[in-house]
Design a protein around this nucleic acid. Structure first.
Lengths: 219, 219
DNA sequence: ATTAATTTTTAAGTAAGCTTAAATTTTTTT
DNA sequence: AAAAAAATTTAAGCTTACTTAAAAATTAAT
């Protein structure tokens, strides 16, 4: 399977997690930086290979086979992220950029070596779950978006769902890191902003950020 | 630069080291598993990009730019080999196979991280020199092929120049490993075989092997 | 030094993965 | 519900990196 195909199924997989009705060629095209026409072509091709279901003008949906392919790539991506983070102490943005390339040239053999070396971790440094060798995600996800949190409650940061360098730079500067504790001090319902306290600093975040920062409640 | 181009210049670079008159399209084609016609096409294309010198029916020769490209790929290949060997304890054959893929998807940034992590090694686990960041090989090579050694002298294995699984399996089984000491007990000049002693075992090797096993004299 | 064998080159063609432009369908707006 | 906007699809075309087959040049053999 080519890099183009692997990236295509990965993009569908990631999109389906959020909003499966929205997984149309144009949407995937935008994420991959290709034209709508190219995405339609690819979708039709992959349908003949039993990798996805394609119906004109309808949303794309991966078959079991396609989902397994996507999860295999996602597994390699997240294992590389975890590995590079630990071994070379690279930034969240850098590990993503490198993993984006390495994921396509990594044998299952090597992926398993990396996993074993790391003690078969369940999450990568962004807090994203790492599928196992069979493409299964065995962890249950109890995290919620920061935008959905309740005032005056404490939470632990569990996931930073982004690829954006500026976002990660901001997080690093403000101590927003996987595992750190924050206190939600105010939810501005009118303008959808969230005020939090971390390391004795007060920060106000807008929805662009509070929808991609995930947290777990502290019991 | 594409994977096809990187592999092409790498193949020329490796061939030039041995016999520069022999570096014609058909030769490179055979190494890459492509047709002669494809190799000729590629050579003509790369000539327009100032990557190599091309003259009809003559041997191919890399330009300074082309050689730098080749050395950059070779550097990444050998750094990956050294890294995988050390970190995951993989076999000489396995590290080669994985490095062959990873070398093309590795940024200079990551290559430098790997090099630094390993203490900027000068040689990979096969004994091949690792070019530095500027594409320079700073080590001088004093090794000779096992076929050129002298009877009743001791040598240290310094290089195993092969990609072949069977060869590496043979080496592993017989203790033929980078850094190990051997005694040359007989050179059969008639049939070009070499008899050595290692770990109290006697082995007779033919030229297929003695031309790719390199050794250093013990002073 | 011819002839034979091999290699290189040219020519024509293919598949993958894109592009732009136009036609069609769906979705949104009024 | 009709018109406008947006998205999807179709069509035609491009580039890269190959292929096979035939022509041309080089190399090897007698």
């Amino acid at each position: 399977m080519s890099v183009a195909i692997e990236n295509f199924v990965k993009a569908i997989y990631k999109n389906n997690n959020n909003d499966s009705n929205n997984t149309k060629p144009g949407n995937i095209a935008k994420k991959l930086g290709i034209s709508n026409a190219a995405a339609t072509d690819m979708a039709k091709k992959l349908a003949t290979k039993d990798i996805l279901h394609y119906e004109k003008y309808k949303a794309l949906k991966l078959t079991k086979k396609g989902e397994k392919m996507a999860l295999n790539v996602v597994r390699k991506h997240r294992l590389w992220e975890a590995f590079l983070y630990k071994t070379f102490d690279m930034s969240l943005h850098d590990i993503h950029r490198e993993a984006e390339l390495l994921e396509h040239e990594t044998s299952n053999f090597l992926a398993n070596k990396i996993s074993e070396y790391l003690g078969n971790p369940k999450f990568d440094p962004h807090g994203d779950p790492i599928p196992n060798e069979n493409g299964e995600i065995t962890t249950t996800n109890t995290s919620i978006a920061l935008s959905k949190t309740i005032e005056n409650k404490e939470y632990v940061i569990s996931r930073l769902m982004s690829d954006d360098k500026e976002f990660f730079d901001f997080c690093t500067q403000n101590g927003l890191k996987y595992g750190n504790t924050i206190l939600v001090t105010k939810q501005f319902s009118s303008n959808k902003m969230t005020q939090i306290s971390i390391n004795n600093n007060t920060i106000v975040l807008n929805q662009d950020f509070t929808n991609i920062i995930y947290v777990d409640e502290i019991n």
